[in-house]
Design a protein around this nucleic acid. Structure first.
Length: 342
DNA sequence: ACGATTTGACCTAC
DNA sequence: GTAGGTCAAATCGT
């Protein structure tokens, strides 16, 4: 039985994710065989493998509309997706685990330099739509920290959040910390809404969303196109992914690294355990300068519309062209047919 | 009317 | 006890 809503593109993406996972597993195996590598490398590989499979599973889940399955509950145990009052949430047995689970979400940060003339155009510069849900003055920081979560949290249970804070030293530099990976299908969201709304409401909703999020794109291809189109027009936003490489891994890739990260430039010292940044992602985008309009308030923060978007690993596929994927002919990709046809 | 933002209160980790 | 993170009612914008 074909999974509803699963198109060829999604299958390809899942193929890529699973293939990536397999490749990483092989690398891990080699590392373990050699026993000469650092523990950090293995941990990083495990992180990437898990992320690849998690992403593939997320695609499968969203495509199959299985948000209420046990799998979903296990991965998103707390009740963010409900509109329950706080008191109801507090009655949940997961109550004490909420923050632990939240803390366990993958987290990574990047620094975005915004020098502007015209004004940034929308909160979807990183390809996702965000909704601000809080702002907080941070001790010792000149500027407040703004909290954003995925617009589709309620609709699709997407737990991705990001925090944006101006740099004390240079207000034109924004520190963005992403937390959690997007499990939402932002492409399908609009179409889903289109189905559920009456024609009149649909039109109004679409118009509203266009007004609110003029840069909202409906696909990976468009993100890429936008990224190209934005080159050399108006002001500049520079993104500097800030993952903390395990030292050995970092050093081993320094040849590339030197070309990607300006020395001592925007490498976060605070990123945590899971912030292993895939090299291919660095290569594809970290040194790109994308362009925007003018600077805006902290409460209106956008990221450059490059395809890195919001996952250290999960969105790796966005930068993956198929010919970059080294398909192993022995890899049982036909197992996917089991998913797609069962 | 509807969705986004603001902001004070609440909750958890440290 | 404090700081950071989140919630949700009130408010704003279209």
């Amino acid at each position: 039985m074909e999974i509803l809503g699963m198109d060829c593109e999604q299958k390809s993406l899942i193929n890529i994710e699973l293939t990536q996972g397999k490749e990483l597993a092989n690398q891990l195996k080699n590392q373990l065989d050699q026993k000469s590598s650092g523990e950090e490398i293995c941990e990083g590989l495990v992180e990437k493998i898990l992320s690849s499979y998690e992403k593939a599973l997320s695609m499968l889940k969203s495509s199959a509309n299985l948000l209420t399955t046990t799998l979903e509950l296990e991965s998103s145990p707390h009740s963010f997706t409900s509109d329950s009052p706080r008191s109801e949430i507090s009655d949940q047995p997961h109550k004490n685990n909420v923050f632990k689970k939240r803390k366990a979400l993958p987290r990574w940060s990047e620094q975005v330099q915004v020098s502007s003339e015209k004004g940034l155009e929308g909160p979807t510069g990183d390809g996702y739509s965000w909704r601000k849900y809080g702002q907080k003055d941070i001790l010792g920081a000149r500027f407040p920290r703004a909290y954003y979560r995925c617009t589709h949290r309620h609709a699709q249970g997407c737990l991705a959040t990001k925090q944006v804070q101006k740099s004390d030293e240079d207000p034109s530099i924004l520190g963005i910390t992403y937390r959690g990976r997007h499990t939402c299908n932002q492409t399908s969201h609009l179409s889903t809404a289109s189905v559920s709304l009456s024609p009149g409401k649909k039109q109004k909703k679409e118009r509203y969303e266009q007004q609110q999020q003029p840069k909202q794109e409906d696909g990976i291809q468009k993100q890429t196109e936008e990224m190209v189109l934005n080159f050399g027009t108006g002001s500049k936003v520079e993104r500097f992914p800030s993952f903390s490489f395990p030292s050995t891994l970092f050093e081993s890739s320094q040849n590339v690294e030197n070309n990607l990260f300006p020395k001592n430039n925007f490498i976060s010292q605070e990123t945590s355990e899971s912030n292993y940044f895939p090299l291919s992602q660095c290569c594809s985008s970290s040194h790109m300068n994308t362009t925007f309009g003018s600077e805006s308030d902290l409460t209106e923060i956008w990221s450059a519309p490059n395809s890195v978007t919001n996952s250290p690993i999960g969105d790796l596929d966005l930068d993956f062209s198929l010919d970059q994927v080294d398909f192993d002919p022995n890899f049982p990709l036909d197992i996917l047919d089991h998913f797609f046809t069962s």
